[in-house]
Design a protein around this nucleic acid. Sequence first.
DNA 1: CGTCACGTATACCGTTCGGTCTACTATGTG
DNA 2: CACATAGTAGACCGAACGGTATACGTGACG
Lengths: 188, 188
Amino acid sequence: MTESVRERLIGSAVELVQRHGVAGTSVADLLERSGVARRSVYLHFPGGKNELITASVEEAGNTIGAMIERLVTTQSPPESLSAFIEFWKHLLTGSDFEAGCPIAAAAYGGQEAPEAREQAHRVFAHWQDLLVPRLTAYGIDEADASAVATTTIAAIEGAVMLCLADRDTAPLDRVHSQLQRLLPPQTG
Amino acid sequence: MTESVRERLIGSAVELVQRHGVAGTSVADLLERSGVARRSVYLHFPGGKNELITASVEEAGNTIGAMIERLVTTQSPPESLSAFIEFWKHLLTGSDFEAGCPIAAAAYGGQEAPEAREQAHRVFAHWQDLLVPRLTAYGIDEADASAVATTTIAAIEGAVMLCLADRDTAPLDRVHSQLQRLLPPQTG
DNA sequence: CGTCACGTATACCGTTCGGTCTACTATGTG
DNA sequence: CACATAGTAGACCGAACGGTATACGTGACG
């Protein structure tokens, strides 16, 4: 039942990276939030902070990826899109616009943590791979499906960033309305 | 002719924030790159690092904003879009995928530098204000124009982030192809 | 000439950084 | 019991952090 030390560390890393980025997340912060002894960090992650952050990017990527998979296998692309947008709006409002996408934060902090950036690359590739077959099944030309998938991810990630800057969810709503236009009515 | 101390500091701050983010940019780095005495920083920016970074976000926002204005006043929306995409591709390849958008970096680093985040908000609002009248003049419904403008900015910003993660410009090309679909042929 | 603004150079402040170390405590399990 | 495993607690390291202080140089202007 109780979370393991490793899980607590990864969970804390995800939350802190969402709020402060990679460079802005210190080991001391991680210890305080996780309530874990300093030494335990290097027991589970001999590579130190960067290895922990890389693992947390993988974990967050898998969690969100599982949600994406659940959405696209149970709903149509437009419905999945709405639900995904709603997820991000809740994350933003629930954190008073302090938390963004941890994967994006890792991509931007890639200079100091190259392994975390590579992990971010894998996560984004995975997310797109989940979308492409659903888009083609929905009637989108195979040649265009990967571009639509990339654009959906990019526009939402960019909108989350705009929401952080604006401290408002309106950018996500505006992006939502336009991304719907990229999804043709079925049998299109 | 020679750059003033203030200009050197701001220019250095823009480049460093593009590469390392707000939290990852140290005063020592700024001194080394700008070749300026430590004391001079606090002479020009009594608020220290945060004030300097806020000024650099304003400066970078104005520079890119001026480019956007030049593009949209001399070319059609699709042509402007292509040129803007090309600008980002050059920035990425010219920095070996180490430099991204400094405004986005400020938005993500807003936790530790709130004034810089507010400045990022103003910059993005300005960029969108430059696009909206051109989109309506191009035939896009007034109710949709602001959404198209937001989506264009968001998708490109997100694509730049994906390019950093992938170390490849392909995401920008894919996003480009889909953003074109949001711009109807004239008299549409 | 005096002085004052602007700049450099560098020492220094207290704090925090990531990471290592020693010592101790549970909880099993052979 | 013996002993390994996994954890806590906390001192400690050298380096880097943002910011302040002191001393000096230089050029414009009254």
